[in-house]
Nucleic acid binder design. Structure first.
Lengths: 240, 240
DNA sequence: TAAATGATATTGGTATGCCAATATTGGCTT
DNA sequence: AAGCCAATATTGGCATACCAATATCATTTA
């Protein structure tokens, strides 16, 4: 529980909008109306409106009212949890290796230093799962950031959000924590950094590709040997 | 102006966090502290916190406090309209060429036929801008679909939504409609399809890369010659 | 001494009230 | 009758005050 109330109100408002026949550009009921409708204070409705505003669903104009900005049906709430870990890994292998190649040619000394720092943390905190995980994510996303292309960073972030929000992945990854595969991956990361230092685009692409190939193989073995409950998530197996 | 104050406060708080040495997981100063610091009411700070919470930057716990959830520096600006056309094209070049390579090895006969049909439409309706545009999108997204990887399709769709929702891109693209660059691009598309038919991954990658390179060059010329208002959107130029 | 407990402080949660910007209305002028 | 303008209503913006959950700490008790 402990869901924040403004989120609930926000979702309720979305439903109300969906039920009504409000079109894009139309004016919404006022904050006061929703407040009375839901039996809460206007403050809460206002907070919910802020949420919808940030989601670019509505536009708020002082003294005038609030207006529907985007079509609610295009929300495209991708069921993150429906994506299999291997399908996601396959996509990451394609995209992140390209990102690594792209980063290699434009990466700055500061970025390289930052990556080195992250690797230091990673090797120091290797046994603390939480920390190692964060360092892992930081390493990959920092490379995306080094491309100086916000779209690439945005895309990579999205892929990692998919991973972290995926229950299947958590289940799979939980099995690894005892083993020492993190060592292997740390070595992979180092190899990637070496290529980035050399500003070798194809080398970086290859190193990142191999790294994610290793991750795929590792997880595949684990899911294959003692996890029959991953059937149906294997359609995008390694080396497809 | 008319910027909503809570956004300003939110950005200020981000700066404060950046200046401080608060790490992920650490507790942030309380709402009251920020309120006094900025000389505003706690309500506003609270609204700013909601914004940061939705951005998944912080986590708010009742009675306890607010905590840094994600690394501030890795947060991408998801403001679609803020992304320059060339930055987006650069990302598409990286990602879509990888997608083409991936598709080449798993593409089905049906997919190939579908692509052929789209190209037929494209060449038939070449002069009808709207139709040509749709066919263009269909061609690219169908390739993504051919990978049989929903994450890749989702990513590609996202990139095209960014394009179509971008006012700058519309402005740029409007200049093309009179010219016959679509011919060139149709030829590019045909070359991509040839490589896909051969199931030549590297060939498909190269063809798609070259296609988007051509698009970049074309748009770059146009923006360079008679569109001084695209300054600031060119930081991700071709061949960076 | 250490664990349990209850009082107190801290912190986010919610409601109410007034302010400022905008929209609407009604009367006046032409 | 049409258009302008002022009075008024509507609506979101912001601040203050009090509530509830959590944390902290002093006291008690085994």
């Amino acid at each position: 529980m402990a869901e924040r109330l403004y989120r609930e109100i926000g979702e309720s408002i979305k439903q109300e909008i969906a039920k009504s026949n409000i079109k894009v550009g139309d004016k919404l009921p006022t904050e006061r109306v929703y407040a009375e409708l839901f039996g809460v204070s206007r403050t809460l409705v206002r907070e919910a409106f802020i949420m919808l505003e940030i989601e670019e669903l509505i536009e708020v104009r002082k003294g005038s009212g609030s207006y529907l900005k985007n079509n609610l049906s295009l929300k495209a709430n991708n069921k993150v949890s429906d994506v299999g870990p291997f399908e996601l890994l396959q996509a990451r292998q394609e995209i992140e290796s390209s990102i690594a190649a792209c980063a290699a040619s434009v990466i700055t000394k500061q970025d390289l230093q930052k990556l080195q720092d992250i690797l230091d943390i990673e090797s120091a905190e290797l046994e603390i799962v939480e920390k190692a995980n964060n360092a892992d994510r930081d390493f990959h996303l920092s490379i995306a950031q080094a491309t100086q292309n916000t779209v690439l960073l945005d895309t990579a972030t999205r892929l990692w959000d998919m991973r972290d929000g995926n229950p299947m992945w958590k289940k799979l990854h939980a099995r690894i924590q005892d083993t020492s595969y993190h060592d292997q991956w740390l070595e992979d990361h180092k190899k990637v950094l070496v290529q980035l230092r050399k500003r070798n685009a194809e080398g970086a692409r290859q190193a990142m590709w191999q790294h994610l190939e290793n991750v795929k193989q590792t997880l595949f073995k684990l899911s294959d040997t003692d996890a029959p409950d991953f059937d149906g998530y294997l359609f995008a197996q390694p080396n497809s």
